[in-house]
């Protein structure tokens, strides 16, 4: 499935050529914040499907990262044995892939990134989502990481202090992953050559005949909203948050054989029988020993 989707994404993006995608693709995408008052909340699903989504929370300044995600409609699930470690966003990855009991491995977990809104760079958070406070004008992102090393979100954090955003989309300042030869870090360098190489469909800023305004002046940074451009039209329904949740959580529930479940009284009765049996055995043996 994902392979087909990726292939389609690559094909379409390649056909689209060097045009730049700016328009929002789903209703929930309000893009990153244009002014310095709010907090940009980004979730990049990458290979999980669903693209990179971003929302501007106008009153998000000073809130904790976890509150920002849940407050903007992203459901977070934590690892059972490691409190505060985000395991699932919007039910992804599914319980079949990861039961969320132990901490996920380093090549399949949600990275937490943040930006203070001045540097225009993502910083890998050294705190958990419940402890990290995002300043007003900053950004916070959860990015699915299925490669060795870290992979930055496909959406660049807005930069509010600089006078004018630079005209070319090549600016996208994500310096950390560039030395690494991982495929996901490629597109961040030059978006135009991205689709030919990269396996994740998220940060492809190329597009087709978008009715969008020119990317140059208006937006703080052009490729802000990059929800897997057109494949969403062909393969996946859309990258809207609500659309994304319903099928996955449904399938998660379907993974548990509901029909095979036993009524609740069965285990309780058995527990009583086991411990009661142990008590009876003790009494019987003691009596036998005494006589």
């Amino acid at each position: 499935m994902t392979f087909v989707r990726r292939a389609v994404a690559v094909l379409v993006a390649a056909a689209a050529g060097p045009l730049v995608w700016v328009a929002t693709a789903s209703p929930s995408d309000a893009a990153t914040c244009a002014d310095a008052g709010g907090v940009s909340v980004v979730v990049d699903f990458k290979s999980l499907g669903g693209g990179a989504q971003s929302v501007c929370d106008p009153h998000g300044g000073g809130q904790k990262a976890a509150a920002l995600f849940t407050g903007n409609g992203y459901e977070l699930t934590y690892v059972q044995r490691t409190p505060g470690f985000v395991c699932r966003v919007q039910g992804l990855p599914t319980p079949e892939d990861d039961p969320c009991v132990n901490t996920p491995p380093a090549n399949a977990y949600w990275n937490l990134w943040w930006s203070d809104g001045k540097t225009g760079k993502w910083t890998y958070s050294s705190l958990g989502a419940a402890s990290l406070t995002i300043p007003a004008g900053g950004s916070v992102a959860l990015s699915w990481d299925d490669v060795e090393g870290q992979s930055t979100p496909g959406v660049a954090p807005p930069k509010h202090q600089s006078a004018a955003p630079s005209a070319t989309p090549t600016v996208k300042p994500t310096p950390t992953p560039t030395p690494k030869p991982t495929p996901t870090s490629k597109p961040t360098a030059t978006p135009t050559e991205a689709p030919t190489e990269e396996p994740t469909e998220s940060p492809t800023p190329t597009s087709l005949e978008s009715p969008a305004p020119s990317p140059l002046p208006a937006e703080p940074l052009p490729p802000t909203v990059t929800p897997s451009p057109t494949p969403s039209a062909t393969e996946t329904p859309s990258s809207a948050v609500t659309d994304e949740v319903a099928p996955t959580s449904g399938s998660a529930d379907a993974g548990d054989p509901d029909g095979g479940g036993l009524p609740a009284w069965v285990p309780v009765a058995l527990l009583v029988a086991l411990f009661g049996g142990a008590a009876v055995v003790v009494v019987v043996r003691r009596r036998a020993g005494a006589s």
């Binding site: 059972q80 319980p95 079949e96 039961p99 969320c100 009991v101 998660a252 529930d253 993974g255 548990d256 054989p257 095979g260 479940g261 036993l262 609740a264 069965v266 285990p267």
Partner: peptide, 15 residues
């Protein structure tokens, strides 16, 4: 999986 590692919001079930 959900029987072996039940969620924290509902009563655990058994197969």
């Amino acid at each position: 999986v959900l029987t072996a590692y039940p969620g924290l919001t509902s009563w655990p079930t058994l197969t």
